[in-house]
Nucleic acid binder design. Structure first.
Length: 137
DNA sequence: TTGTTGACCTCTT
DNA sequence: CAAGAGGCCAACA
């Protein structure tokens, strides 16, 4: 009873083929590229979740990988607004991984996105879903 | 080389 | 309703 059903509703057409800039200098990872690209597409004052990005890539189960990608996003060019990426609950789960624990809140504050108790205010309102905003049609 | 961990999410009991 | 386990891909030991 691990997977009684596996709905393959993917049909995603990611024609994006950006350069491969990996934290380790590798150029084989495509998942990371997509993650970086999507996060960079996040408009100012908006926030998204790991699962949303993962789902946009086609596999919402790889939400963990999205977080890993962010880990190297700090030294990637152009800089990836990782501060705009939070978990499903709207909590700044990765704020501790930034240069400074308060850096994430600072950046979000500049985006007019206020945070309270490690949680984004009106998260659902600031929420930015790539699959929806980008409109897959 | 294999095994474990990891900025998560979803399903099952 | 709450808690536990499973699962994805990649990096580190």
């Amino acid at each position: 009873m691990a997977n009684p059903v596996k709905p393959n509703k993917s049909a995603k057409a990611i024609s994006e083929k950006p350069k491969a800039i990996l934290p380790s200098g590798r150029k084989d990872a495509s998942f990371f590229e997509q993650v970086y690209d999507v996060v960079r597409l996040v408009p100012r004052g908006r926030v998204t979740s790991y699962g949303a990005i993962a789902a946009y890539l086609g596999t919402k189960m790889s939400a963990r990988m999205v977080g890993w990608a962010m880990n190297g996003a700090h030294h990637v060019s152009p800089k990836v607004p990782a501060h705009r990426v939070v978990n499903r609950n709207g909590m700044l789960s990765g704020k501790a991984h930034f240069a400074t624990p308060s850096l994430m809140e600072e950046l979000l504050a500049k985006e007019k996105v206020f945070v309270k108790d490690n949680m984004i205010q009106d998260f659902k309102t600031k929420y930015w879903d790539p699959s929806v905003e980008l409109s897959l049609d």
